[in-house]
């Protein structure tokens, strides 16, 4: 009934590794499914949830109030006839509830989104952090996601911003501190396969 959280610098291979690990263990892999669940519950589109994550409420409000009315935004982003609603607080409530729910069911690999903090006292949970040099992260994106160097660098910069914003919502700045994790892998020195072997050995120890 173990739970593995994978935090990562974007481009360090967290999603690839998480999926491989979940497949190998027969666990569920929770990544974007959390966002889809939040969107479904709030009756808004996944784009709206991602915008909350990326921009944060204050900046988002400024953008919206400066351009168009909130009701118009809500209407075009809503996925159903019922009017959807989400704000930063509701996002956070749903996030902690859904991550806690996945963990309580057990046998899960959860990618990011503060899960290492949400589950810090959860029994049988292993928190893993993946890091890598910026140039390697860009190379990983180019090789695995079929994008050019410049585009890869831009995606990584965007995702780093989303990460900073998400953690600032949680009042956390120490997300790259090794003390928050059971294991930190510098992916400049490991393949996903070797990391999976190590994690499985730890689970079986």
């Amino acid at each position: 009934m173990a739970v593995i959280t994978i935090s990562r610098q974007f481009g360090a291979g967290g999603r690839t590794l998480g999926k491989m690990l979940a497949d190998k263990l027969g666990y569920i892999f929770a990544d974007n499914s959390i966002i889809r669940k939040i969107a479904r519950e709030a009756k808004v589109s996944t784009d709206w949830v991602r915008m909350i994550e990326k921009e944060g409420g204050t900046k988002l409000s400024r953008i919206i109030s400066g351009m168009v009315s909130q009701s118009w935004i809500e209407r075009i982003l809503s996925t159903s006839e019922d009017k959807g609603y989400i704000d930063e607080q509701l996002y956070l409530d749903y996030l902690v509830l859904f991550i806690a729910e996945i963990a309580d069911e057990g046998n899960a690999v959860i990618l990011g989104r503060g899960s290492q903090y949400i589950l810090q006292n959860h029994p049988d949970t292993y928190n893993i952090l993946l890091i890598n040099k910026p140039e390697n992260r860009i190379r990983f994106m180019v090789e695995n996601y079929n994008v050019m160097d410049k585009k890869a660098a831009s995606i990584i910069a965007n995702e780093d911003k989303r990460r900073i914003n998400l953690y600032s919502k949680l009042g956390k700045k120490d997300y790259d501190d090794p003390a928050n994790y059971h294991i930190v892998f510098n992916m400049a020195h490991f393949t996903p396969e070797s990391v999976i072997k190590i994690i499985i050995a730890i689970l079986n120890a």
């Binding site: 902690v96 509830l97 806690a100 309580d104 810090q120 006292n121 919502k169 009042g171």
Partner: peptide
């Protein structure tokens, strides 16, 4: 429909984040 332990864990997480 949310289990009690999930509710408690979620409240603990919010305490961790919000103090």
């Amino acid at each position: 429909g949310i289990a009690r332990r999930t509710f408690l864990r979620s409240q603990n997480a919010l305490t961790e984040f919000e103090g």
